[in-house]
Amino acid sequence: MKCDQCEQEATVHEVTIKSGKKVEKHLCEACAKKQGIAVQAGMPIQELLNKYVLAQAGTTPAKAAACPSCSLAYTEFRQHGLLGCPDCYKAFEGLLGPLLERAHEGATHHVGKSPRRAGRGGEAGAESITGGPKERAERLSILQKQLDQAVRAEQYEKAAKLRDEIRREAESAPPPAAKARRRKEPEA
């Protein structure tokens, strides 16, 4: 494939969704660099921050300037790309959300493994870790979407794995005897 801008072979491919429309770019390395597109796969968080967050700066509310637990300022995070403590995720949630979505291909929510403590100490313990029914419904809907996609693409092995995951997620729902069913073997 030829570069959109010149006669070179295109080696950088970018697909972005702009107001619901898919925009594809196919560029050679030189032209990609000119346009400020990162050449390597997987943009380092630093570049994402510079390109995305800084571009958004005008529209970003100036709240959540620092994390209440570790006092990391959002500007420090922007400098180094590292958060200060687990609570930073809460403190900067509004700012991190769009950034993480970009960095993780549109993902907004974790699905998959969760601490085994989730299965321990009954309903209250589990909910405090993996969230309430709303969170669970969200996870189930994400998994269901991925399952539909896999089936459509005839990726049956992947579909089977997703079905397992959905079953585990559904089984982790609180009702009566919510014992350690989330994970295979019992607690030692």
């Binding site: 958060l83 809460k90 960095a103 870790i129």
Partner: peptide, 21 residues
């Protein structure tokens, strides 16, 4: 050991490129 974990973001990591699983 008790891990840092959030219902929404999963396992919490120093760099947000590793968060989730």
């Amino acid at each position: 050991l008790e891990y840092a974990y959030s219902p929404r973001w999963g396992y919490l990591t120093g760099c947000p490129t590793n968060v989730g699983s």
